[in-house]
Amino acid sequence: MSTPPLRLVLVDDHEMVLHGLGAMLGHFAEEVVIVGTATTAGAALALVASDAPDIVLCDVRLGKESGLDLCRQITTQHPGVRVVLLTVYDDEHYLFQALRVGASGYILKRVDASELVGHLRRVAEGETVIDPALAGRVALSAARLNAGEFWAGAHLGLTQRESEVLELLVSGHSNKAVAARLVVSEDTVKTHIRGLYRKLGVSERSGAIAVALREGLFR
């Protein structure tokens, strides 16, 4: 018996990208079929609930929304659906965060159609697929992390400065005090805080502190 085509939902905040993916994957109709497209997280969740795709292919960023947050929601609410991030961000910090929220793949948009279909088939078979362009850097990052050469929270996608800010928040410092300790402006501190909130999937200081404590980032 032939294998039925994989059922896909495509999610990107740019209609042009969705049309391009549709045209690209249309040449592989025996292997993949697009059951729906969405430009927002809410629309994507509705499609997943109604159409039960095998795989959701989405970007890391969806305008003002986060593809990582969407991935977390899908994998939590629909554990049988796999999520693959298809993005231009060749950043291992985003990759680590994607894997943390349950993504089954992280692929760069420069992939060609046949490679993408092959990656999707592997994901459907239960593999976790990382774009070859990132694989070597990920291995190096993992080795450094095991050797203790990375800062606390690097595996969560935090930059070194964001880690420093988070450690001071955990210690009870105000934004003003953090700025004084790091010799930067309060606006800069607020920017770092917004970044670490997004990467940790929280919206307030107490949530960030809770994640830091749960992960044992600072001892």
Rank of each mutant, 00 (worst) to 15 (best):
A44C: 12
I55S: 00
V60F: 00
H14N: 04
T39S: 13
S50V: 08
G20I: 11
D12W: 09
F28Y: 15
T40M: 02
D59P: 09
G42V: 07
L25G: 12
L25F: 12
D13I: 06
L57M: 05
V48E: 04
A29K: 14
M24E: 12
I34A: 12
M24T: 15
G26L: 02
V60G: 01
L57Y: 06
M16D: 12
G42Q: 14
H19V: 15
S50H: 11
I55T: 00
V17C: 00
A52W: 03
G20A: 06
P53T: 03
S66R: 04
T37G: 11
G42R: 12
H27Q: 13
V35L: 12
V35P: 07
P53L: 02
A49L: 08
E31T: 05
I55K: 00
A38L: 12
D13F: 10
L25W: 11
V9Q: 00
H19T: 11
G26M: 03
E15K: 11
A41I: 08
D12G: 05
V60H: 02
T40H: 12
T40C: 01
L47V: 02
V11C: 11
G26Y: 08
G36S: 08
H27Y: 10
T40D: 07
G22A: 05
G67A: 01
D51S: 13
E15D: 09
R61Q: 14
A38T: 12
A23G: 07
E65K: 05
S50N: 12
R61L: 08
V17L: 05
F28H: 15
T40P: 00
G22P: 11
A49C: 05
V17Q: 02
L21H: 07
L18R: 10
T39A: 11
V33C: 07
E31K: 15
A38S: 14
D59C: 09
A29C: 08
F28C: 12
V32S: 11
V35M: 10
D13Y: 11
V9M: 01
G26K: 01
H27I: 03
D51V: 07
V48Y: 02
A29T: 10
A52K: 10
V11G: 09
A38M: 07
V11R: 10
H14W: 08
L57F: 10
V56S: 03
E31Y: 06
T40K: 04
G36V: 06
T37W: 05
G67S: 02
I55C: 00
A38D: 06
D51T: 08
H19G: 02
E30D: 15
M16A: 10
V17S: 00
G67N: 02
D54T: 01
A44Y: 06
T39M: 13
T37H: 07
G63F: 05
T39Y: 05
R61M: 08
H14Q: 14
H14P: 03
L18S: 13
E31Q: 15
D54S: 02
D54M: 00
A52H: 14
L18V: 13
C58V: 09
L25H: 11
H14V: 06
F28D: 14
D13H: 09
G36T: 12
G26H: 03
A49H: 10
T39Q: 15
R61W: 07
D51G: 06
L10T: 08
L45V: 04
D13P: 07
P53S: 05
H19I: 10
L57V: 15
R61I: 09
V35E: 13
K64V: 08
